Simulated assay, not measured.
Amino acid sequence: MSDMLEIRDLTRRFGGGRTIFGTTKPQLTAVRGVSLDLKRGETLGIVGESGCGKSTLARMLVGLDRPSEGAIRLDGKDLTEGGAKALAARVQYVFQDPVSSLNPRHTIRQILEAPMKHLLRLNGSERKKRLADLCEAVNLNPDFLVRYPHEFSGGQAQRIGIARALAAEPDVVVLDEPVSALDVSVQAQVLNLLDRLKRERDLTYVFISHDLAVIESVATRVAVMYFGRVVETAPSRKLFAAPLHPYTDLLLNSAPVPGKQRLRAGGDTGELPDPYNPPSGCAFAERCPRVEEDCRRIDPPLEAKARGDDHRAACLHPLPAD
């Protein structure tokens, strides 16, 4: 599989500058130099605690937020440049809250037709045909097209959100916690739908979630984020079988599993560092059970360790290879 989407040194800062009185405004960096490659046809899972920068990264990938630094390239063309609107249709977004992401004043027909009109420039007959195709693809009753978003359950609304993303005929779909607001039984239905659509339409997914069980079931490759940085990447099976970074190990041991007592490393506060006053060295040092003196001085790069080029970690003292 070839690299389809390239993310290079992506950074997003909020705040900063000066007030009218000349005082400095506080600034935080939500995403810190993230570099990732997305291969055609894969599902890249992105995991991490709340506040790690997952959603900010997702918003930059689809153009809802502009990076402060870095580049996003789709098939070699820069999406961060001014002429990227034509390419933007190729990367679409599925939101976390299915109901609030839909315009309450528009019917489902108007919502689904908007990408067809403004991105694909389809005429009336073409839109009618495509609407029928979308309804069939997401198992949506065509009679629902005249209704409004508040008339649907969360699972139905998320199917509409998925159909809206597909209406632009994208190559890449960014899914930001697409099942976290749904009941467990509905989650399974939506995940099965996404898997089928991926196979039938040759889609590529960026799947963002804090639910490790969901990521393990859908992702072919996983990137773990902490405090705005990617701290470990690996094929899904490798990462879940034997993580390298202590933070990834902490996440796996903290995830609730039926019949298993939840574990947390001794002394871990569970709190991220202050984003307005980031620490020097490794941001995970204060929570890490393997911390050494050099961890507080050196910010480790994301690099391959002893388990091959496809398993990389940003850690000076990674977990031992089995």
Rank of each mutant, 00 (worst) to 15 (best):
R109P: 01
L122I: 05
L102R: 09
C135I: 01
S100I: 03
K117E: 14
D143E: 15
S125K: 15
I108S: 00
E136R: 14
A137Y: 04
T107R: 14
I108A: 02
D143R: 11
A132Q: 13
S101E: 11
E126Q: 15
V138K: 04
F144P: 01
P115E: 08
F144M: 14
N103E: 09
Q96M: 06
S100D: 11
K129C: 03
R121C: 06
N139W: 09
L140A: 03
L102F: 13
L145C: 10
L145N: 08
Q110V: 00
D97M: 01
L102W: 09
E126I: 03
V99N: 14
G124E: 13
A114Q: 15
H106G: 00
G124Q: 14
P142Y: 06
H118R: 14
L120K: 09
E136V: 01
H106Q: 15
E113I: 01
S100K: 10
H118F: 15
L120Q: 13
C135N: 03
L145Q: 10
D133C: 02
F95I: 05
H118N: 13
L112T: 06
L122N: 06
K117M: 12
K117S: 13
I111S: 04
G124L: 08
D143A: 14
F144E: 04
E113W: 02
P104A: 07
L134H: 07
L140V: 04
T107S: 14
T107M: 05
K129Q: 15
R109Y: 08
D97P: 02
L134P: 02
L122H: 11
L145F: 09
A132N: 12
R130S: 04
M116N: 10
D143T: 10
A137T: 02
R130M: 08
L119T: 02
V99C: 05
E126F: 05
L112A: 09
N139A: 13
P142I: 00
I108C: 01
L131E: 01
